[in-house]
Simulated scan of single mutants.
Amino acid sequence: MAKLGKGLKVEVKSTIEKTYRVKSVWKTLQGEGLFAGRPAIFVRMVGCNLWSGYENTRERDAIRTGANCPMWCDTDFTKEGSKNYSAFELAQEMRGEGGDINFCVITGGEPLLHIDAQLVEALHQANFFIAIETNGTVSLQESCWDEERAKLLTPDWIVCSPKLPQEQLTLEYFDELKLVLPDYHPENYNEFTQRQRQNDVQSRKLPLLWLQPEDGNRLQLATQLSINYALENPDWRVSVQTHKILNVE
């Protein structure tokens, strides 16, 4: 409250602008999925709800969350070296980094812990097509609801790579599904696959269901499992991490 002479008061609303904690922004090629090989601006958000990102918490977080990914995740999404941006500042940073590139991928960690209607709108105003990769544990209604206009403002393309059982996934829909083998098997996500938005490609309905071999000491086993399953179940495809083959970040 601020005083206006003779004890009169007026309520002063906070003008603090929301910021988004970002680990890094860089120009590269999308390495996986339908858009593999496409020039992109990547934005890595800080933080995940399944693993802290620190080596000494892998086993603890795997037990705490029930997810296997803390034991093998190799992504650095910790707060060290990160920076806060407003929605406008982040859009400007991305445009400055990417030039004429209009395709962006927001990842993490878990990007839906950060993404909201305000950020989606700012990136759309900057002419970006927004793709994200999420673990499916945060709903779009929760993260991207625009209270002022009473509607959802969501990313344009959603890749879900679940790390928990399907009954714990709250994501309402996805465009591509990526299961990391050997820990996450298609048989355990039969109901969740029904949440896929169907996409018309060459006048056909194309299921974008991917089997991603875990890139670690189980790579050979995971690759063979993926190949075998895809050959027996042709709606599924084997995902190849082309960015690693091309040696780009």
Rank of each mutant, 00 (worst) to 15 (best):
S52L: 03
S52H: 09
Y54V: 11
E55V: 12
E55S: 12
T57A: 09
R58Y: 10
R58S: 08
E59S: 09
E59C: 00
E59P: 00
R60S: 10
D61R: 04
R64E: 13
R64S: 08
T65K: 07
T65P: 07
T65E: 10
T65A: 08
A67D: 12
A67F: 10
A67G: 09
N68T: 11
P70H: 10
P70A: 09
M71K: 12
W72K: 00
C73F: 06
C73H: 03
D74W: 02
D74H: 10
D74G: 03
T75S: 13
T75D: 04
T75A: 14
D76R: 04
D76N: 14
F77L: 10
F77S: 07
F77R: 09
F77D: 10
T78W: 10
K79A: 15
K79Y: 13
K79Q: 14
G81C: 10
K83D: 01
K83N: 06
K83T: 15
N84L: 14
Y85V: 08
S86F: 07
A87D: 09
A87T: 09
F88Q: 15
E89D: 15
L90Y: 09
A91D: 08
A91F: 08
Q92V: 12
E93W: 01
M94R: 05
R95F: 00
R95T: 15
R95P: 00
E97I: 14
G99R: 02
G99I: 02
D100Y: 00
I101N: 01
N102I: 11
N102P: 00
F103Y: 15
F103W: 13
C104A: 14
C104S: 15
C104Y: 06
V105R: 02
V105C: 13
I106K: 01
I106V: 14
T107Q: 03
T107I: 02
G108C: 05
G108H: 04
G109N: 07
G109S: 07
G109I: 06
G109A: 11
E110S: 09
E110L: 08
E110A: 09
E110I: 05
P111T: 06
P111M: 07
L112Y: 08
L113I: 12
H114E: 07
I115N: 04
I115K: 01
D116C: 05
D116L: 05
A117V: 05
A117T: 05
A117Y: 09
Q118C: 01
Q118E: 15
L119P: 01
L119M: 14
V120T: 13
V120S: 02
V120G: 01
V120F: 00
E121A: 10
A122I: 03
A122V: 03
A122W: 02
A122R: 05
H124Y: 00
Q125R: 14
Q125S: 08
A126Q: 07
A126N: 05
N127F: 08
I130S: 06
I130Y: 06
A131W: 02
A131G: 13
I132W: 03
I132T: 13
E133A: 05
E133H: 02
T134M: 03
